[in-house]
């Protein structure tokens, strides 16, 4: 009888702990739920697709070098007439209701027009970067570091000029 009572107490305490952590979604879950919402455009590229893409960049070696280091890109953008409101909801869904404990907040910018947060998570296999703003939410993962990400703007711009776009 005593052992049964102890087992029941242990199960109940583990369940209570589980429900506390379960109230916040994981990043993947939030992306999944928001991607199917109305008035949102969603774009994702997986690692397998990046492997195919690197072959397509044979004429642009610089871009190819960066693309080959990427594992995953996810982008959510509010669309439609009420995109500002949708953007605010997206921002709070990600910042408040997603478990980002493993991420380090690099910077936050709050002003009248928009809110933005940059987060990073460094790992052994890959680094993850998350940009959450009221205009869009972007997730990038790969073996790139933050310095390489800042260089991407110039590299893609140059590649675009070279192609004549």
């Amino acid at each position: 009888m005593k052992t049964k009572v102890i087992i029941i107490i242990l199960i109940l305490s583990s369940l209570s702990g589980f429900t506390q952590t379960k109230s916040k979604k994981t990043l993947s879950q939030t992306f999944k739920s928001e991607s199917t919402a109305n008035n949102v455009t969603y774009f994702e590229v997986t690692k397998k697709m990046f492997e195919s893409l690197t072959k397509a960049y044979s004429e642009e070696p610089k871009v190819k070098e960066y693309i080959s280091k990427l594992h995953n890109i996810k982008m959510l953008q509010p669309a439609g007439e009420k995109r500002n409101e949708k953007g605010k909801i997206l921002y709070s869904n990600f910042i408040r209701y997603t478990n980002l404990d493993d991420f380090t907040l690099l910077m936050t910018n709050n002003n009248e027009k928009s809110k933005m947060s940059f987060l990073k998570k460094e790992g052994k296999v890959k680094n993850e970067f998350l940009l959450v703003s009221t205009d869009m939410v972007m997730y990038v993962s790969g073996t790139l570091d933050i310095g390489s990400l800042t260089e991407l703007e110039g590299i893609i711009e140059m590649a675009g000029e070279a192609v004549g776009l």
Binding site: V45, L53, I73, M116, T150, I156
Partner: peptide, 29 residues
Amino acid sequence: IALSDLELIELQQNTEQALFHFSKELNAC
């Protein structure tokens, strides 16, 4: 994964746009 050339080009452009935007926001900050 098997994609046509057109799909591949479209994917390429979208990826570049996304990365460009990300990098631009980071640099702006």
